[in-house]
Amino acid sequence: MVKTESRRPGNSSPAGAVTGRTRGRRPPSSGPRPTGLTARQRAAIWVRRHHLAPYLLLIPATAVIAWLILWPAAQIGLFSFQNYGLMQIIGAQPTQWIGLGNYSQILHDPEFWLSLRITVLFSLVVVPLTLTVGTLVGLLLARLGRKMATFVSTSALLAWGTPAVSASVIFAWLTDPDGGIVDWSLSKLPSWLGGGPHWAEFSWQNSALPAYTVLTVLLVWMGFPFIAVTVLAGLRTIPAELHEAARIDGAGPWRSFWTVTFPLLRPVFMVLLMLSIIWDFGVFTQAFVITAAPGNRDEFNLGLYEYFKAFTQPPAYGMASAIAFILTLILLIITVGYVRASVKQGEVR
């Protein structure tokens, strides 16, 4: 982010860059020549005159996004107003338009409110925790020597690179009531450390609080490396003189972080915060394994709630689409809030 800013004065707009390149490729004989132009050349002139080049270049990416994201999203929007289920898919019953029926049913479902509560509380804990741990590791990496930094960042990135299912299964085993190392260790701990024999065979998956405690540790473990590496990249862009000046003025690490590092990296932190919220709000795979879904319906988060509305007997794809829409709406509100805040602070240019 900061890098972009420093390059900015000499940077031309994307459109300008593209037309410049197009001009460069043209034959050296310049000047408008109404006759003797090939169809290709005429098309190129037309494109240039109407400033269409950037849009043409965007077409491939837009097509892929439209096909993979926009079209399914539009369908989900459509299904959310229909009684779309198995019978409608196999054609046994006609698809009916039911207006806001799905939405009102969801808003009257106590399971929805429970899963929303779990999702929000979980995000409120995991997002700050991941950001804090990640930032601390990032600051640590900046201070370490080259070899040590490579070692630490490699180890951390291994956690990040572990497939979600593998990581979840490993954590489920660690916390297994039958011979899981976590229960065993806790039961061996002296009682003044919170341990004791009551931890032996403690089941972490059969109520929401223990299950989401395990999930919190798992997601922080999987999430902090990305934050750390991103923060490290940000730190490298801060000129060393700034920290040096702060140190000479007598600022300790704490003060130096909040008066120099944080304000400079604020855009980076804002992006990381947004991404973390989106990830932790929609976490599915890890929650599926750790809560032993679908046997524990009172431990659903919004992702699990949506999935099992869609795929358990009787499948209610319309209802699940409505939940997906609500989930998107919530995240959209958060994102819009973020963008507004950023615009006010003059960070988005």
Binding site: P177, E201, Q205, A292, P294, G295
Partner: peptide
């Protein structure tokens, strides 16, 4: 009965075929 069996079928977690009372 230990807390382990809360939320389980007799075979274990829903969809699993081991890890439950049957195996135990």
């Amino acid at each position: 009965s230990p807390s382990k069996y809360i939320g389980q079928t007799e075979l274990g977690n829903t969809g699993a075929t081991s890890g439950g009372a049957n195996e135990d």
